[in-house]
Structure formats: C-alpha cells, structure tokens
Amino acid sequence: MIRQLIYIFIIGAGLTACSSASYIAADADVIAVEGEVATNNTIDSLILPYRSELNKEMEAILCRSEYDFVKGRPNAPLNNWSADALLQFFKDSLNDSEPTMVLLNTGGLRSTINKGDVTLGDIYKLMPFDNEVVMVRLPIDRLEQIADYIKSSGGEPIAGVKYHNGKLLFNESTGSDSFWVITSDYLYNGGDNMSFFQDAENVKYIGVLLRDVFIEVAKAQKTLVYKDEIRIVLE
C-alpha cells in the first residue's frame, strides 16, 4: 500500500449557521489496491463458487487464431474482423436493393484476441458490454457526416464501404436515396457523439447482442480469418 499524504486545508466556516462545526480540515490519500494478493476468508469464500463456475464456462474454446488480432486506427485486423462479423451474420436478412454498411467504434473493442486458442472469455473481454445490434436507416446525404466523423476520429471499424478522398463509397453502388447502418444500440443512442444517427428514418432492434454475434462468427470460422485490406485512407 502506498500512502501519500497529499495536503491539508480548510473548508471555511460557511456551515456554522446550523451545525456545531466552526471549521473542517481534511487530509487526502489515494490508496493503491496492489501488492501481495490478499486472501481472506470473509470475501474469498463468498466469491469462490461464482468464480469456479464462471471460469469453467469462460475457458470453453470457440476456435483458433493464427495472429494477434489488434485494434487500431485507421485500419487494423480486429477492426475488419469485427465489422465483417456483423455483415456475415446478417447477410441473409439484408435487402439487396438497399445498400448496407457496418459502423462500430474502435473504442468499443475492449481487448485484443491473441494468437492461439480463442475462448469464450476472450470474446467477453473483447466485448464486455451488453450492447445490442441495431439496424438504422439513414438518408443518403448522411453518408457525408459519417465520412467526416471517421476523418476526425482517425478511423472506426467499417464494412461494406471504403473511405477514400474524404468520401465513403459503398462497395456495390446503387441509386438508393437511403441506406442501412448495422451498429450497436450504444452508438445509435448517441454514444461516442455519432450525432448523425439522430436523423434515422427507421430503426430495427434485432434483439441480438453484439458479443453473441462475435461468438457465433468465431465458432463458425474455426480459425479466425480477416480481410487484410485497407478500408480507410486518410489524406
């Protein structure tokens, strides 16, 4: 335990009207929770049954990975893999006449998937939040705002589109005046300031967790694969 004595000061006498105190002094410390791992029966006996059961479940191997899947900006293997996972998972339910893209947030990918066995616990670390998948229909001109967002953030996981020369272009162009974005309810609800989602024409809550999509896709791939392509080229 590191105890740093920080400082002493006075909180003024403003509270005297109704209280018995005339002044208040305070010391402050930050106590780092570190050092020898403490074991104490009071807490450990409570946690142990939960931990054992959970660990057993989390150690289940879903697939293998031949690389370290890291996230990054503007492009990274984990960015492409996670965005593609959504496109792959929902491809049968998409309407071909309307263009569809995937947009996630780099910040939302919470951990690397390391080379070797990929366990259920690894995917939980990647996506600990219970974010749900939503499909959002936006007017076609909002594509510019998404492009601006990607430019200013430095890159987010995308699929179905490429960012080039300051513009987002669908891999398969259509003349549609609107498009669908597969994303998370967190982002749709204003998370990470993706304000363009406020102009949604339609929203479908799929009732599937983002993490569950990753789990299913990992299982189906057996060995994790990602498209080694540059999707975002920042000038």
Partner: peptide, 26 residues
Amino acid sequence: GNSVLVNQVGWAGVNLGRIDFEIEQK
C-alpha cells in the same frame, strides 16, 4: 466562497480514496 473538495479514484477498484476530516467544534 468556501472550499469544496471534488475527488474521483479512476475505475475498476484499482484505487481506494481516503479523506480524513477533522471537525473543530464551536
């Protein structure tokens, strides 16, 4: 015009905050 302390200790329980108050009685 009086002082207020604002404290926050990160997240995940990596730190524990401690503030010792001493109150002078009237």
